[in-house]
Design a protein around this nucleic acid. Sequence first.
DNA 1: ACTTTGACTTCGG
DNA 2: TCCGAAGCCAAAG
Length: 106
Amino acid sequence: MLDDLRITVRKIPRGKVATYGQVATASGYPGAARQVAWALHSSSGMGLPWHRVVGAGGHIRLPGHLGMEQRFRLEMEGIRFRGQRIDMAAHEFQFAAKRKRKASRR
DNA sequence: ACTTTGACTTCGG
DNA sequence: TCCGAAGCCAAAG
């Protein structure tokens, strides 16, 4: 399950960001925002774009040095910052709607 | 097995 | 706008 969260995070394209809650919901676990953080923390260094995951409203929820590094990386990907926050209105990534695989595909 | 903490979110004052 | 409390799931002590 934390695995699912990691996969979802991996789907975030370059130049976009998503909130923990979004990732959790998109993975099928609404309300498991903390687990997203735990998943990233647990698998940091696995090639996951953890820097593309931010808090609600584009707020950096990482403490100290890590937060600054994330901010730096995001700026490097073309994401603009609005003071202490990210310009979510322009970079918030929206996950594809999860459809029930039930003989309907299109 | 139980308690505490954590890269969270949302509402209220 | 900033601070605090409750809800939430999983891992560590």
